[in-house]
Simulated assay, not measured.
Amino acid sequence: MVRKLAAEFIGTAWLVLGGCGSAVLAAAFPQLGIGFAGVALAFGLTVVTMAYAIGHVSGCHLNPAVSVGLWAGGRFKASELPPYIIAQVLGALAGAAILYVIANGQAGFDVHAGFASNGYGDHSPGKFTMGSGFVCEVVMTFGFLFVILGATHGSAPKGFAPLAIGLCLTLIHLVSIPVTNTSVNPARSTGPALFAGGWAIEQLWLFWVAPLIGALVAGGVYRWVGGDEPRAIEVSGDPQPAR
C-alpha cells in the first residue's frame, strides 16, 4: 500500500505540475503561447505518461473522482478510498508548490490572479454561470469515468487504455476550459486553489461535489452497460478469461 500511495502522490503532482503548469507558464506566453489546445494536450499527456509509468503499481488514478468511480463500478476497494484520496490531494499540493516556486521567479507574477484555479461566474474564462459549470463538471466527469471503466475492462483491447484515457482528458479540456478551466478532478482543483486563496477556495466546493456525482453515476451506469469482468476459469491448469 505504501508503494501505491507513493505512486499516486508522485503521479498527481506530475498532473498538476504538467497540466496547470502549462496554463500558468505557457498558455499566454508572448507570441508563442500554447493556448487552450496546448493546455488540453498537456493534461492528456500527463495522464498518458503516468499511466504507463505507474499504472501497474497503483492503477494511476491521480484523481479522487476516478477512485470513487472505480469503487462505484466494482473495481476498487472502499477501504482504500481514504488513503488514495489523501495521497492524491497531497500530491496535488506538492505539484502546485513546485509550480509556485517556478512561476514566482517571473517579475510581476501574482498567484492571486488565478494560478490555473477552477471557477465559475466572474472566475470562469468564458464567464459561465455556476449552473453551467456544475452541469459541465458532472457530465465531463461522467464521460471520463465511462471511458476509464471501458478502456480498462477485462474484455477491452490490451495496452491501449492509457492512450484512450489521455485522449479523453484532452477532449474534455478542449470542451470545458472556457466553462470552468476544467477540473473533473477534485485534487487538481484543490492544489492551485489553496495557493490562489480567496475566491478559488470559496468556489472549490463545486469542484469536489460535481466530479464526485459524475463519477458515482458513471460507475453505476457502466457496471450495467459494460457487464461483469471476464471470469477466470481453469483450462489445462492455466487461468483463462471466460468469453
Score class of each variant (00 low, 15 high):
residue 176 S to N: 14
residue 90 L to N: 12
residue 164 A to D: 11
residue 220 G to V: 07
residue 208 W to G: 11
residue 95 G to N: 03
residue 186 P to T: 06
residue 66 V to G: 00
residue 232 A to Q: 14
residue 27 A to V: 09
residue 187 A to Y: 09
residue 36 F to V: 15
residue 242 A to S: 12
residue 92 A to N: 06
residue 145 L to R: 02
residue 200 A to L: 11
residue 175 V to Q: 10
residue 197 G to I: 04
residue 124 S to A: 12
residue 23 A to N: 07
residue 167 L to A: 10
residue 175 V to R: 03
residue 159 G to Q: 09
residue 142 F to D: 00
residue 148 I to W: 01
residue 146 F to E: 01
residue 226 G to M: 10
residue 49 T to K: 02
residue 233 I to W: 04
residue 102 I to A: 13
residue 217 V to H: 03
residue 53 A to Q: 06
residue 230 P to V: 12
residue 67 S to V: 15
residue 202 E to Q: 08
residue 133 G to W: 08
residue 220 G to K: 11
residue 10 I to L: 15
residue 236 S to V: 06
residue 193 A to M: 09
residue 76 F to T: 02
residue 242 A to V: 04
residue 22 S to N: 05
residue 90 L to E: 04
residue 96 A to R: 01
residue 71 W to F: 15
residue 189 S to F: 14
residue 191 G to A: 13
residue 41 L to Q: 05
residue 1 M to Q: 02
residue 35 G to K: 01
residue 200 A to F: 07
residue 125 P to C: 08
residue 184 V to W: 02
residue 120 Y to T: 14
residue 121 G to N: 11
residue 226 G to L: 12
residue 92 A to R: 07
residue 154 G to N: 01
residue 124 S to I: 06
residue 137 E to K: 10
residue 134 F to G: 02
residue 118 N to M: 03
residue 43 F to W: 14
residue 123 H to D: 00
residue 110 D to Y: 09
residue 219 G to R: 07
residue 227 G to E: 09
residue 100 Y to T: 06
residue 238 D to V: 14
residue 149 L to R: 05
residue 97 A to K: 05
residue 49 T to Q: 04
residue 96 A to I: 00
residue 68 V to W: 00
residue 29 F to L: 13
residue 48 V to Y: 09
residue 161 A to F: 13
residue 229 E to Q: 12
residue 112 H to T: 15
residue 65 A to Y: 00
residue 187 A to F: 06
residue 160 F to K: 05
residue 28 A to M: 08
residue 98 I to L: 07
residue 206 L to W: 14
residue 99 L to E: 01
residue 40 A to I: 13
residue 204 L to P: 02
residue 205 W to V: 10
residue 214 G to P: 14
residue 83 P to D: 08
residue 141 T to Q: 05
residue 16 V to I: 14
residue 56 H to N: 10
residue 156 A to L: 11
residue 58 S to G: 06
residue 163 L to V: 14
residue 211 P to Y: 12
residue 68 V to K: 00
residue 91 G to T: 05
residue 18 G to Q: 02
residue 87 A to L: 14
residue 80 E to M: 12
residue 239 P to V: 03
residue 96 A to F: 05
residue 227 G to F: 12
residue 131 G to L: 13
